[in-house]
Write a protein that binds this DNA or RNA. Structure first.
Lengths: 194, 194
DNA sequence: TATTTTTGATTGAGCCATCAATCAACAAAA
DNA sequence: TTTTGTTGATTGATGGCTCAATCAAAAATA
């Protein structure tokens, strides 16, 4: 019973399916057929909407960026003090909808892809710059510029590292603990320079 | 002009070639033919020595682990104080031979592979545990147990995150700066608890 | 309202290229 | 001549992508 206006629904479903497929097949074993099957459609339809596997992947990455960006926007809108803004960024990174095995795997794949795909690299830099500038903006109000930049880099690195580790569940570090670790790092640096 | 005793030479060359191929083709575009060509041999020879693509990949991962382990061993052998041991671990992670785009890409691929490959996961856990226990061992002499564990996790995460960022050269963070960031984090935590 | 036309949604079948893996054969050292 | 090193040719399977055809809803027309 095909209805009209299916395009956005299918695009969404295929992107979600791609994220899942990346998670449990890996980039090497990723096929359009598998993705399409997970989305409940034929592989031909996936090609119809995205043109090619590469395009679907790029769209998936863009989706990840958008979701995370939206998460930040929501939280930053309610943060009034510099401290609250820092917390918003830290907690945004570990929000339940982001801090999931499938999503983390997809981000990992994204990082890999960026090494040999110019568009992926471009998108990734958007994320990196946004994260760092958000952190610097918050920290700038509490620390000397040089220290603020260092701390932003350290915190950003710690966040990414905690993501990486969460991907494997090798050492089970739940979101709350991750948040606490980054927060402690930042707040102790701020206190030291008070 | 085939000589005798080629096996270790070929194995080495193929593994290095695999690391390079992963870096600039990605896991998706990785082929035995490409790897073999980079190593200057036929793809048949790669199969002859490794049996299969999977085996070659596992051997490559094992090689990465061995190299890093050796780096640690060398540095830890000359470290007498707890402080020196911490430094040895931090600096070992950013040693020139480790902190290279190709090697970092391979580690990234390794992380991804671990999500759906049991052997890769097993190997990766070896690395994670070794890093964390080395850090905890050094920090235990200077900090209360709970704080030592947290700091070890924070430092380990920061190290991995700095690696991740170095992979892209998006935000150019040279080794010395990375080392300084992690060291500052650890030393300021130690001072705070002195 | 009934009928025709149009159009978006969808797929099965299949082409074509690629690639992992195998094999038979050959060259050089021992 | 046995062993080790090596390759080109081959194959079987797989997967990206195309295409012609179908189907059902919407729009247009009578």
């Amino acid at each position: 019973m095909p209805k009209i206006g299916m395009e956005p629904v299918r695009r969404r479903a295929l992107i979600t399916a791609a994220i899942e497929a990346i998670h449990d097949r890996g980039m090497a074993g990723l096929t359009m057929g598998d993705i399409a099957k997970r989305a409940g459609v034929s592989s031909a339809l996936a090609h119809h909407y995205f043109g090619s596997k590469d395009h679907l992947l790029i769209a998936t990455m863009r989706h990840l960026l958008d979701e995370l960006g939206e998460e930040f926007r929501r939280r930053l809108a309610e943060a009034n003090t510099p401290e609250a803004r820092i917390d918003a960024i830290i907690e945004g990174n570990f929000a339940p909808c982001q801090f999931q095995p499938t999503v983390i795997s997809a981000w990992l794949a994204f990082y890999m892809q960026a090494q040999h795909d110019a568009e992926a690299m471009r998108l990734l830099k958007v994320y990196l710059r946004r994260l760092e500038s958000n952190l610097v903006a918050g920290l700038g109000a509490m620390l000397p510029p040089a220290v603020a930049r260092d701390t932003a880099r350290g915190a950003a690195a710690m966040i990414d590292g905690l993501w990486l580790r969460a991907a494997l569940k090798a050492t089970d570090v739940p979101a709350e603990e991750a948040i606490r670790l980054v927060r402690d790092y930042v707040s102790s640096t701020v206190k030291r320079h008070a």
